[in-house]
Amino acid sequence: MAQISTPLATSYTSRTGSGAVQAAAHPAAKHDPEAAASSAPSHIRAVPAGTEARGFVLYVGIDEEKAENDGTELGSIVSQIKALVAQLAPSSETYAAVALAPRGSGGRDVDVVRLALQDPAALAKHRQTPDPADRAHDGVVIDLSRKRVLLDNDSANLTYKEFELLQYLVLREGRTIERAELITALWSASDEDIPNERTIDVHVRRLRSKLGSYEDIVRTVRGVGYRFDRHADVSVRQTSTPSPDLF
């Protein structure tokens, strides 16, 4: 399940993404504004006044098993879509993400992807239905859907990066993650405050301090890195809105 996008401040949508591609690629549209207007699908919403289109989002719903049955894999699909975009518009920038969900969680793949990648329309529809699991719970509640951590029903008030760090470990439960992998996965080359393998320990220490008496859910594997260990008093919620992870 993959998303290809460029950064968007605001967005507008098309009911059928292929129509937008066809309009952009139509030969007459490059030279004749009237032809471009007439060839554009009527169902594409006009860009609001005072704004400009900066890119688009394409949601692709397909799990690993379906991709394998089709004789391909998610990585190959992503690579080919990115290559096509680069061919059509060499000046374009692309970004890809994969939406992760627990096995057997059900639902249409494309809906799962839209929720995971925070599509506003999908989130609005989802919020109309109360979550029966949203109730008092002693211990630790790591809610990947809503990006929050509760400690005995009180918010842990993690920073964005602290939550990302915990989420990365939770999604790889039981596996020891090296410091170098955490840095590569959670910080981009353009970040100004990229830690080194020594200072990543500071980030982990701050995370643990906010976990209070439950700090031992993030284990140190001496000389290697860190691991998330689930305890009986730890609940991880990821049933309705799975969390995206970098591809």
Score class of each variant (00 low, 15 high):
54 R>E: 00
87 Q>A: 05
76 S>W: 13
95 Y>A: 00
72 T>S: 09
73 E>C: 13
93 E>C: 05
78 V>E: 03
74 L>C: 01
59 Y>T: 07
76 S>K: 15
87 Q>C: 05
77 I>L: 11
59 Y>L: 03
87 Q>D: 02
74 L>F: 07
81 I>H: 09
83 A>R: 15
83 A>M: 12
72 T>V: 06
67 A>M: 10
82 K>N: 14
54 R>F: 01
63 D>W: 11
91 S>G: 00
63 D>P: 12
63 D>I: 11
74 L>P: 05
54 R>H: 00
66 K>E: 06
81 I>T: 10
79 S>A: 11
90 P>N: 01
91 S>D: 01
62 I>H: 06
91 S>A: 04
68 E>G: 13
92 S>Q: 01
56 F>E: 00
93 E>H: 15
61 G>L: 07
88 L>C: 11
58 L>V: 11
92 S>G: 01
64 E>I: 15
57 V>P: 01
85 V>A: 04
90 P>S: 02
83 A>D: 12
80 Q>L: 06
55 G>T: 07
57 V>E: 00
93 E>P: 08
86 A>V: 09
85 V>F: 04
67 A>W: 14
74 L>A: 02
58 L>F: 13
87 Q>F: 08
92 S>F: 04
66 K>N: 07
55 G>H: 07
93 E>Q: 13
85 V>P: 03
87 Q>N: 07
72 T>D: 02
63 D>M: 08
85 V>H: 06
53 A>P: 10
87 Q>H: 09
71 G>L: 11
57 V>W: 05
67 A>H: 14
79 S>F: 11
63 D>F: 12
81 I>E: 01
53 A>D: 05
75 G>H: 07
90 P>G: 00
54 R>V: 03
81 I>D: 00
87 Q>V: 05
86 A>W: 07
70 D>N: 10
83 A>G: 15
86 A>N: 09
86 A>P: 07
70 D>Q: 11
60 V>P: 04
53 A>Q: 11
53 A>K: 12
79 S>M: 07
78 V>A: 10
55 G>R: 07
58 L>P: 05
89 A>P: 06
91 S>Y: 09
58 L>T: 06
69 N>Y: 10
76 S>V: 12
